[in-house]
Nucleic acid binder design. Structure first.
Lengths: 169, 169
DNA sequence: TGCAATTGGTTGAGCGTTTGACAACTGCCG
DNA sequence: CGGCAGTTGTCAAACGCTCAACCAATTGCA
C-alpha cells in the first residue's frame, strides 16, 4: 500500500495530455472515415490489411490479429463488409473449418476512393503539426509502449489473478 | 485529389506503431480498472474529476467537458454511478435547471481503493518503459496534437461546427 | 408582460462491441 | 476405430455509446 509510487505532476500532465490528444485524434480520424466511407476506422483497417495481403485475402484469425481485434468482433465486422459487397468469404480448401476473407474489386475500389481523404486527415491531425524529430520520437515511444504491453501480458505485477500465459502464436 | 501526399514508409510505420501502442495501452488500463473496480476508464475519469473539484462536485456540463464526454453520455454514466452509490445529484440553487454531480463518501472511498492499482498500471504500461526524456517528448507531442485538433474544429465550416466536410473536392 | 430563442440536462431507441457458450472440425493417443 | 483435447468460427444476450427528441428554466426582445 505505502509502496504505491504516485504520479509526479509532470507525469500527471503528460498522461492527461496523452489521453486528450489520443481522444481528439481518434475521434477526428473516425469521424472523417465515417463521413466519407460510412465505416468506422476499425473497418477501414480491415480493408487495408486485406488489400496488402497476397490475393487480397487472409484467414479470419490472421486478420483478427492484424487488426488487433477479437475473433468475434471481426466476424461481425466482416459480415457487415460482406453485406456491402466489399468483402467475401471463401472456404479454406486445406482446412475445412477455416475461412478466408477476401477483398472484392468493389471493396478495393472503395478503399482506393477513401484512402485519399483518410491520408489527408492523418496528415492534418498528426504529421503536419509535428516536426520530423517528433515523428521519430513518437515512433520510438510507441514501439516501446507496445513492446512493454506485449511483454507484460504474462508477468503480472501484483495480483495476476488470471494466469493465462502462452498467448504467443 | 491528384495532389494527395501519401505517407512515407517512416510515417506509415510511425502511424501504425502509434495505433498499436495506443490500443494496447488503453486496453490494459481499461481491463485493469474493469477488473479491480468494475467500471471502464471513462467512469473512473468521472470519479477523479469530481474528487479534484471543490466540494467534490461539478455541474454536469463542466464534468462532461472535463471528461471529454457528451452530455448524454455523461448523464447515463452518472446515473449508473448513482445506482452504485458513488455519486449523487444535487439541484443547483442559483439555476434551477442545473444539476451538480457530487462524489459521495462511498465513491471517494472506492476511488481511493482503486487508485493504487490504476496508478501502478499506468506506471507499468507507460512511464516505466519510457525514459524521462521520452516522457517529456510524449507530453510535448500530445499537446501539439491536441492543439491541432482543437484548432481544426472551427476552421472550414462557418456555421456548421460539426460537419467537418471540406475534404478533397 | 408576452413570446420566441437559447441553455442545461434527461430520456429512449437503435447500433456496435464484448463476453461466454456453442458447433464444427482436426489431431493425437490408445 | 473411438474418445479427448485444442482450434476455428459463429451466435445470442448484456453493456455502453450515439443520436434525436424532449422538458424545463432562463434570457432576449419588443
Amino acid at each position: 500500500m505505502a509502496g504505491t509510487r504516485w504520479l509526479t505532476a509532470d507525469e500527471q500532465r503528460a498522461w492527461r495530455a496523452y489521453l486528450e490528444a489520443t481522444h481528439a485524434l481518434l475521434a477526428a480520424i473516425d469521424g472523417q472515415l465515417q463521413q466519407s466511407m460510412g465505416v468506422p476506422h476499425a473497418y477501414y483497417e480491415i480493408l487495408v490489411r486485406l488489400s496488402e495481403a497476397p490475393d487480397r485475402s487472409l484467414r479470419m484469425s490472421q486478420l483478427a490479429e492484424a487488426c488487433m481485434s477479437s475473433k468475434s468482433r471481426l466476424s461481425h465486422a466482416v459480415a457487415r463488409l460482406e453485406e456491402r459487397g466489399w468483402v467475401e468469404r471463401l472456404n479454406c480448401p486445406s482446412d475445412r473449418r477455416g475461412q478466408f476473407a477476401r477483398l472484392t474489386p468493389a471493396g478495393f475500389a472503395a478503399l482506393e476512393a477513401g484512402a485519399h481523404g483518410h491520408v489527408e486527415q492523418v496528415r492534418n491531425a498528426l504529421f503536419d503539426p509535428l516536426s520530423p524529430e517528433q515523428v521519430d520520437q513518437l515512433a520510438a515511444i510507441s514501439r516501446t509502449i507496445a513492446a512493454a504491453a506485449d511483454g507484460a501480458m504474462g508477468e503480472g505485477g501484483l495480483d495476476s489473478c488470471c494466469s493465462n500465459d502462452a498467448e504467443e502464436a
